[in-house]
């Protein structure tokens, strides 16, 4: 075997991961090959030198938070420009598609189909004669003014009616309340009268009996 064939065994020996058989083989070789023995020694020295680099502390303070505990601010931070651009482009494309589909016209005449696509309503395209003039705007303004005035008048009228009805209801409530109160008072007065009359009659009867008694006594005595 050549020295190159012992390279892996030297490495195994260096890290103490060599089998007893292979160790014996390597030792036997190194007894007759000072180069391989020197190589093992120098590699060991190199390995020791490498250990002069101590471990460093990352001090990263990395903490994972469950998705549902992220604040709105965190979510906004995560929502980068690229996502925004994709979202915006997608929304625009969707709107254009909806407009195109919504304003597509398919007609059939003379044995053939006609397909017309547009981003704005095809039937109501602005024609030169349909352009608004200043007079149109004035007319529109006056019409609007009249309509709004009418609405205000109607609103005022209906408000008055509503208030009158409300007052009428209120009056009815008060009247019924007054009537019931009057009934209660008259009933109470009747009871008071009845009681007074009873007591008056009793007193009258007692006085008559006393007079009769006095008369009787005076008649008996000489």
């Amino acid at each position: 075997m050549k020295c190159e064939d012992y390279q892996n065994l030297i490495i195994e020996e260096l890290y103490d991961e060599i089998s007893p058989d292979d160790r014996l083989k390597l030792m036997t070789h190194m007894r007759t090959c000072p180069e391989c023995a020197t190589k093992l020694k120098t590699l060991r020295t190199t390995s020791q030198t490498l250990h002069s680099w101590p471990d460093a502390d990352p001090s990263l303070n990395l903490t994972f938070v469950p998705e549902n505990r992220l604040t709105i601010r965190d979510r906004l931070k995560r929502f980068g420009f690229r996502q925004f651009a994709y979202g915006f482009a997608g929304a625009c494309a969707a709107i254009l598609l909806i407009l195109a589909i919504g304003n597509t016209r398919i007609t059939y005449s003379d044995g053939r189909f006609e397909f017309q696509a547009s981003l704005r309503p095809t039937g109501t395209a602005l024609q030169p004669e349909n352009y608004l003039t200043k007079a149109d705007l004035e007319q529109f303004k006056l019409e609007n003014y009249a309509a709004i005035s009418q609405i205000i008048i109607e609103n005022n009228e209906s408000e008055r009616v509503r208030q009158a009805l409300m007052m009428s209801d209120l009056y009815k409530d008060f009247e019924s309340k007054r009537q019931s109160d009057l009934q209660v008072v008259s009933q109470a007065l009747r009871q008071v009268n009845y009681g007074s009359e009873q007591r008056f009659n009793q007193t009258d009867r007692a006085l008559n009996a006393l007079i009769q008694y006095v008369n009787y006594q005076s008649a008996i005595k000489p």
């Binding site: 195994e12 590699l43 020295t45």
Partner: peptide, 18 residues
């Protein structure tokens, strides 16, 4: 074997630099 070989040559290169 590739790992051992890379270690051998890597350490040899390091030794040379050192």
């Amino acid at each position: 074997n590739t790992i051992k070989s890379r270690l051998y040559y890597g350490l040899s290169a390091m030794q040379k630099i050192f």
